[in-house]
């Protein structure tokens, strides 16, 4: 069910991140976020992947930086960002050289978002595809209602992560907070550290060879292949008991 080919999406492999000699710098001290986003959104999906690179300076925690891109652009943001950075991203590679506020990569469709620091709540919420790589920790509700995105967190994830996750993969190297995978559908969760508690209808499942292969491919994209042992991770997913309402389960909702 929901087998997803690794590497199927374009421009999602970190190794494919391009360096362009003519990187354009946009400083948010002198340019508004709205103007920045209008510039980035002006590129269409037929843009060549080596055509345009941007470096965003002085983000200072501003919200909605680099949202709604629909082209294989390279965007590097030099500092901490506020809410919804890279939201709705299609095809772009976005590097955040700092922490990200709530909802980084919210509703992302494809491409890569790489957070060098920590991410706040709801990282990758409702996202359909692409890769969200977080070097630090992600706080509560990471991957809430995920719909196909792959999220790899090298630190821990907060409570209610993977809540109602429909498909896609969520990997945490560190610990997971309370109620992991609450009311989960078919998203797959891999956690190496301690899980505080599992949410309703979320259970630990056997880590079979196909899961090891899937996990290895994800670790490879996160530049952790051969550094982390896939066998140290445990797999969590849906017990599929709450898909349809049954009166005996009323208390579990």
């Amino acid at each position: 069910m929901n087998q997803i080919d690794i590497g199927k999406w374009s421009q999602r492999d970190l190794n494919m991140l391009r360096t362009s000699s003519d990187t354009r710098e946009i400083d948010l001290l002198t340019t508004s976020v709205r103007d920045l986003n209008a510039t980035l959104q002006a590129f269409g999906s037929n843009t060549r992947s080596d055509e345009a690179s941007f470096r965003v300076l002085t983000p200072n925690g501003a919200h909605a930086i680099a949202v709604g891109i629909d082209a294989p652009l390279n965007v590097e943001i030099a500092g901490h960002v506020g809410y919804y950075c890279g939201g709705m991203n299609k095809c772009a590679s976005i590097i955040i050289d700092g922490n990200a506020g709530q909802g980084v990569g919210e509703n992302m469709m494809s491409g890569v978002i790489h957070v060098k620091g920590d991410a706040s709540q709801c990282a990758g919420a409702t996202a359909h595809g692409g890769l969200l790589l977080i070097e630090g920790n992600a706080s509560a509700r990471c991957g809430i209602s995920m719909k196909g995105i792959d999220i790899v967190v090298k630190g821990g994830i907060g409570h209610l992560s993977g809540f109602m996750g429909q498909t896609g993969r969520l990997v945490a190297f560190g610990d997971a907070g309370e109620a992991l995978g609450d009311s989960i559908y078919e998203a797959r969760i891999y956690v190496r550290g301690k899980v505080e508690s599992l949410g309703a209808d979320c259970i630990e499942k056997e880590l079979r060879d196909e899961h090891r292969a899937e996990l290895f491919a994800l670790l490879k994209q996160a530049d952790e292949a051969h550094k982390a042992d896939v066998s140290e991770f445990r797999r969590y997913g849906s017990a599929r008991k709450l898909y349809n309402f049954h009166i005996d389960n009323a208390g579990a909702y």
Partner: peptide, 26 residues
């Protein structure tokens, strides 16, 4: 307990600061 509202903190040798959003700490 469910951390409904946003919060971020910064600590240095000089101060501890709280804010609803990071940009407030800048």
């Amino acid at each position: 307990p469910i951390a409904c509202k946003p919060a971020v903190m910064a600590e240095t040798d000089d101060y501890v600061a709280f804010a609803s959003e990071y940009r407030s700490l800048t």
